[in-house]
């Protein structure tokens, strides 16, 4: 998939910004552009060892965890790597569990995020995800969050939520939230 290989009818920045805020039709329209551009992964099988994420989704998913975790990501590279890997595994579990209608919407969003013109114009990230950094992901989240388009605000919320859930649910993150875990006396009593 070449990020620049899009038909002449693909939406340019101006065309994109004209789309109505918060309209589900906009995703459908953009989804159609992605399909025209040959980028849709609607029928792509999951990556080996995963239930729902495709091989092309994996670098994006890993950066999403890193970008949302930010400075909370452990300094030790091995520990950080394990947290990112577990985060991606958890994203896969969450997305696989969505109902089919929601999965279709997430698939459209993930496909769009792989598509160069959208990633550049809407997200401000020129590099493909395999070459991007956590800072690039944060730039995308900032652009989506600040956008006047409800559609992108919605994408921001969805991405921030899933990144938060899969990182802050991990015991490795508990100390940073000064969360002691369940009361130790109860855990001891329950497992006695």
């Amino acid at each position: 998939m070449s990020p620049d290989w899009a038909p002449a009818t693909a939406l340019d920045r101006r065309g994109f910004l004209k789309l109505g805020a918060g309209s589900a039709a906009a995703f459908t329209l953009l989804g159609a552009s992605v399909q025209l551009a040959g980028c849709s992964q609607q029928a792509t099988p999951a990556a080996a060892g995963f239930r729902w994420l495709t091989a092309a989704d994996l670098p994006f998913a890993r950066l999403l965890v890193a970008g949302v975790a930010g400075s909370a990501l452990p300094a030790d590279p091995a520990v950080a790597d394990a947290a990112l890997e577990e985060g991606v595994r958890r994203i896969d579990i969450c997305l696989d569990a969505l109902g089919a209608p929601a999965q279709k919407e997430v698939r459209k969003l993930f496909d769009l995020l792989q598509w160069g013109p959208f990633r550049r114009f809407a997200g401000g990230v020129a590099k493909p995800w395999s070459e991007a950094t956590a800072a690039d992901m944060q730039a995308l989240l900032a652009n989506f969050s600040a956008s006047r388009l409800g559609l992108l605000n919605g994408a921001f919320r969805a991405l921030a939520k899933i990144g938060s859930i899969v990182f802050w649910s991990q015991p490795v993150a508990y100390p940073l939230a000064r969360y002691p875990g369940p009361p130790a006396w109860a855990v001891a009593a329950l497992n006695a």
Binding site: G67, V68, A69, G70, S71, A72, Q138, L141, S145, F156, R157, A160, K161, G163, S164, I165, F167, W168, S169, A173, Y174, L176, A177, Y179
Partner: peptide
């Protein structure tokens, strides 16, 4: 306010979320 549920409603990321 366990951490996962709390983080999921903050709609923040990176250092601000941390």
């Amino acid at each position: 306010l366990q951490p996962m549920l709390a983080s999921s409603v903050l709609a923040r990321y990176g250092d601000a979320l941390a």
